[in-house]
Structures are given as structure tokens and as C-alpha cells.
Design a protein around this nucleic acid. Structure first.
Lengths: 286, 286
DNA sequence: GAGCCGTTATACTCGGCAGGCATGAGCGCA
DNA sequence: TGCGCTCATGCCTGCCGAGTATAACGGCTC
């Protein structure tokens, strides 16, 4: 039994005659006649009574007609939904982001995106950059946003640059500097993020090349706590520029190494091997 | 889009691999692969991500999978219902009967039939014998029960004989007779049914051949009223033997003509050109 | 990293079936 | 009785689904 049989059945029942239905279906009457007989033989019962030159639904046929219409409606619904999904009118966008990206970028941007793609159900996942990467590769996420390393089969689109900032109280000696070289932090007390933050990794790499070992007072999972410690004069907080905080009483200087600012780029990363829904592509473009 | 595509889609999604699904479906892997691609191209979106040697549902595919299962379930339901209808487990039996047959036969018989065919919805229609005939021919009824004339494309199965009875008070002169010839009714006052009753037509025909003209006191549509008039001594009621009434104070004699009882047969009549559901056939047999 | 296994995609061929054409058969109507 | 309308049947063709063979590719192991 195929949908064709059901379409034909309904058409004949509606038209009240094989020839008329055949004309509407753009097939010939014998072809249609055959399909109806095939369906009847498969179902094991006659759908129509052949009385004289006219077809008339049997009681059983009338009974099955309603169900058949339901099936065809459902099939149409499937097509329609597929069209909507293909056109991006509906669907699910599984989005991963680092906490900082979430705070600084997503929450603001998502408002506009939700307005533009009202049918899209956006699911947000917060995780560290490295773990986001594996989740994209596993297919759990469509997109990862943040300072996520690309590579392998992942494709990335840089969104905007992220600098590594040094945050200190305004009255510190170093607070007069517009920028701060990593080497100047030697033996300074610094407040760092954990090693699953991209900015921390960049800072470490810069210290490595500069052969300095700052005193690490704390390794935190939240840049805000570092800023608040810095405000209290406990050291220099090293945070990414995506961190949002009030700068009152604080001095903020981008970290440099050999005159070049340390930093990278927040990127949208996805799996090149997988198909990206149009709305996900639109998200990246936006 | 055909049901085959949907069956294949679900199979692949369930098996998690084209090859395994192909084995289960008893088709080869390339055939299945092609059908999936065809479905994807028709729907306009990829259902699976080809990541390495593994297929994985896309978000859209997962979305459509639920709907697809619904459709397949509905199609199975259709088959099942067709099987039930073919096997007679469910359906509608449209039954027509004359008032007398209804009273004498159907009401008692239907109890057993309903027990034997619990899924069958029996619709009863009461009408005159001639009109039942046309309604069977029009396909409104599966079966007509009663003294219905056969002929044309109607097939009949005699159920039991019906005699034409003369009903009179016990104290009448004629009340000693075991049977009564029509000729003996000449100039007697008779109480008759209307001309749409088969027994009336038979009585008229007998009078015609006997060349008698009884006095017709009344033409009624209900044999019971005739019986009650006869009990009151107003004449001889001519009713079919299917009439149920108390015989207290009454004498009942079958009418004869040339020594042979006048009567016919209650029959089940159906349209030979149409398909008769098994339960309708069972009704006739029972 | 070379080789093997498992999986999917591609190329080609074959066969069955849907559909078209021609025609027969049945019914209703003038 | 002939005509028109409708459905059924027989035959043919072309397409498409399925099979076979094989390539491409990823992952695993040694």
C-alpha cells in the first residue's frame, strides 16, 4: 500500500466516478481503475460497488475513507513542516557559549534574533571552550560561540576581537599606563581565571615566552570575582575584554607582548561535516 | 512521496545505520540509501548528517521523525480496520424490515446477532415492502426483511412461510372451521390491511381468482387494530401469520384457495450487484 | 602509518509495475 | 436499436526501484 493508492481512492470517492477522478489526477481512466482494484485486493474488501455504470462507496469503503483522508492530511502536514524547517520558519537551534560570551554577547543579540526567527526554538548551553568544541563535534550543538579553538573538521567565523585586559585599582603605580606588557607583571600579584578559559591560556602562553612567573593569588571560574578582588587592591585581575563590569575606581589596560596586544577572536564554530540549518547560518551571519 | 520512503526513513533512524536497516527491510544498502536521498531531496532538507561512517539525525530529521511515525501508524490502522471490516469484526449493517417482521422476528433475533457480532452497528429501518425494495436497489440498505417481492437484480432467501389468517370471534358461525376458503368470505364483512402489505395483495389476488367481493369495513395500517375490531365482532380480520396477538376469545383459521393455504414467504432480500458484507451474509444464514 | 574492516556513495543493469492506448462490455437513454 | 457514457481488459512502453559490483572514506589495530 502506497500513498498513491490512498490519493487515488479519495479522488475517486470525491469525484464519484473513475473517469472524472482520472481527469483531475491527470492519469488515464484504466490506470486509475487498476490502482483502485489493487488497493481493494490488498485491503481484502471492495471499496466501491459497481452498480451499473456507476461506482458507489460500500459501507466499508465509506468507513475507511475518513481514515484515508486523515493519513493524506498527515502526509501533507509532513511536507509542510519539512518546508518550514527547510525555509527555517521553524526548528531548533542548539547553541553553546562560554559564560562570558553568553553574558556579553548572546543575551543582547538573542532578542533581535528571536524577533527575526520567531519559529526557532533556541536552546542555550553554557560550557567551557574546550568542552563546547567536543559537543559540536558530537553533534549536540549546532554552534559554539566564544573563544573556541577551531581545527579538525570545525569551521569558525571570527566575530570580534577579544583582548586580554589587566584590571587594577586606579591608585596603583601601573595605573598610569595605557597598555601593559606582560613582562611588567613579573612578580606582581595576579588574579587569574581557570585554565579552561581561553584568555587564561593566552596569558599563560605570553608569560611563557616572556619567561616571567607572576604570583598567582587565585584561580577563579568567574572574572567578576577577580574584578572585585582587584578593586579591593588584592592584585591585578587578568580578564577577557568580554567581561562586563563597572570601571569606577579601576584602571583597565590591555595586555601586550612585544608591543602587540594579547588576544584572539570570539568566533562562531560549527562542524563542517554536518548540515547547518539556514537559521543557524543566519545566526552566524548576524 | 510514498509510504515506502517513510518506512525506510523510520527504519534507518531506528537502526542508526543504512546497512542494518537495509538488512532488516530485506533490501540492499544502495537501494535504501537512494530512497533516503530521494526523500531528502523531495522534502528539501537533509534528514541525516553524514558524519564519518555514521548517519545521525539532523534536528529537522528528528523533528519530522515523530510525524512520520504517526503517519505509518495511521496507515497500519487503516489496514487493520480494513481487515476487521473484511473479517466482519466491525462495520455497519443497514437493515430494512416491514413493521410486522420487525415485531415478530427481528426484535428477538437481533439479541443473538448482536452478541455474536458485537462490533457491528445495526441500523434498522421500518418501511413498506415495496419501498424497501427500491431502497435496497438504491444501496441504502444491505438487506430487506419481510414479504418483499424479489426480481430484477435482487436475490432473495426465503426465511419462513407466512400464511394469511382469518381472525374472528370464537362464537361466530365460521369459527368451527379449521381452515377457511376465500370463497366462503363472499359478502362477509372483512377488516383489511392497506395495499402496501404483501398479505393484503395476496388476499386481493385470491378474491380476484375466486371472483368474490367481500365487504371491506376498513383498510388499516396496523394488523393489531384489525384484530381488536374482530374481537369486538365487527368482522373478520385478514392478517399475516406474523402478527402477534392474544388469541383469547378469538378463532384463527388460515385462509385457503382451492384447498391450498394462501401465503408466501418472509424473505431476506439483497442486491446481487452489490457486495454483501460477511456479517450481512451471516445475518441471512442465521 | 600501512593495512584491514565496516559503512556509505556511485555506476550500471535488470525487471516489475505504473501508465498509456485501444478496445470490449454493460447500462441508460432517446 | 443505436448512441453515448462509463468501467474493465489486454497489450505495450518507459521509468523507477532494486540488485551487483565497486569506489571512497573513516576508524581501528598492529
Amino acid at each position: 500500500m502506497e500513498l498513491r493508492h490512498l490519493r487515488y481512492f479519495v479522488a475517486v470517492a470525491d469525484a464519484g466516478s473513475v473517469s472524472r477522478a482520472a481527469a483531475q489526477l491527470r492519469v488515464t481512466q484504466p490506470a486509475l481503475s487498476r490502482q483502485i482494484r489493487d488497493l481493494e485486493s490488498e485491503l481484502g474488501l471492495p471499496l466501491f460497488d459497481r452498480v451499473g455504470r456507476r461506482l458507489q462507496l460500500t459501507a466499508a469503503g465509506d468507513n475507511l475513507l475518513a481514515r484515508t483522508r486523515d493519513i493524506l492530511r498527515a502526509a501533507d502536514g509532513l511536507r509542510e513542516q519539512a518546508g518550514a524547517l527547510a525555509g527555517g520558519a521553524s526548528g531548533t537551534l542548539r547553541l553553546g557559549a562560554t559564560a562570558q560570551t553568553l553574558e556579553s554577547l548572546i543575551s543582547a543579540f538573542l532578542v533581535g534574533f528571536r524577533r527575526q526567527w520567531p519559529g526557532i526554538d533556541v536552546r542555550l548551553v553554557e560550557d567551557g571552550g574546550m568542552r563546547l568544541k567536543t559537543r559540536v563535534q558530537r553533534g549536540e550543538l549546532h554552534l559554539a560561540l566564544g573563544a573556541v579553538p577551531a581545527g579538525d573538521d570545525l569551521r569558525a567565523r571570527p566575530l570580534f576581537p577579544v583582548w586580554v585586559l589587566a584590571v587594577m585599582p586606579s591608585r596603583t603605580a601601573l595605573a598610569r599606563r595605557r597598555t601593559l606588557d606582560v613582562s611588567e607583571l613579573d612578580h606582581e600579584a595576579v588574579l587569574l581565571l581557570r585554565r579552561d578559559f581561553a584568555s587564561r591560556l593566552r596569558f599563560d602562553a605570553a608569560c611563557e615566552t616572556a619567561r616571567i612567573r607572576p604570583r598567582v593569588l587565585i584561580e577563579a571560574g568567574d572574572p567578576h570575582s577577580l574584578v572585585s578582588l582587584a578593586r579591593g587592591g588584592h592584585g591585578i585581575a587578568i580578564v577577557p575584554s568580554t567581561t562586563l563590569f563597572s570601571r569606577a575606581g579601576l584602571h583597565v589596560a590591555p595586555l601586550t607582548r612585544n608591543g602587540r596586544a594579547i588576544g584572539g577572536s570570539t568566533a562562531a564554530v560549527w562542524d563542517a561535516r554536518r548540515h547547518l540549518p539556514v537559521y543557524a547560518q543566519a545566526f552566524v551571519d548576524a
